[in-house]
Amino acid sequence: MNEALVDTLRLHPPSVIVIGASAGAVDALMQLLPPLPADLPVPVVVVVHVPADRRSALPQLFAQTSALTMCEAEDKMTLQPATVYFAPPDYHLLIEHDGTLALSVDEAVHYSRPSIDVLFESAAESRGDRVLGILLSGASRDGALGLASIREAGGHTWVQSPETAQVAVMPRAALELAPHVTLDPASMGRILADWGTRRG
């Protein structure tokens, strides 16, 4: 099963990985991100629902256990491979056609800013089928529509298997809307590591 997914990524490589997570995010990302190799050929863009009034500690948190460069996204940053960009608190994060990041303070989606739907939909729109969308644990319905739009554009879509999620509402909402590959986060990390290091 996992070998087949590695092959699928090789046949049809994404140019960006987008990840959305809410309640239970840290636990899931702690399994997913550390296996990723320092020469991962694509950027990773992450929306985690965080309180608006706090400075995000996520980049620092994951930098300790990951070989990838971690940073908080700023307006107009150019996406680089092997780098993980976290959405800043209280801003939506979007991917532009020219490979840069964009922020917005447009209204919250599913009570969330940043919103996973906003990131995922912009990825589908700017990168077409060259996207891998990953939706992890959470208590919201955010991300379900966005992941469906990535799938519709021909991209890869993975959902954390509900039984492995701290909060299964978000994975279930996505799976109710469209069929996606379901995996535990550690397997996602291993598959990406396999694809990222032995790509051909």
Binding site: L94, E96, H97, A102, S104, D106, S122, E125, S126
Partner: peptide, 9 residues
Amino acid sequence: YARASLRRR
């Protein structure tokens, strides 16, 4: 204008 947000709007 930045495209992604404007298009969304």
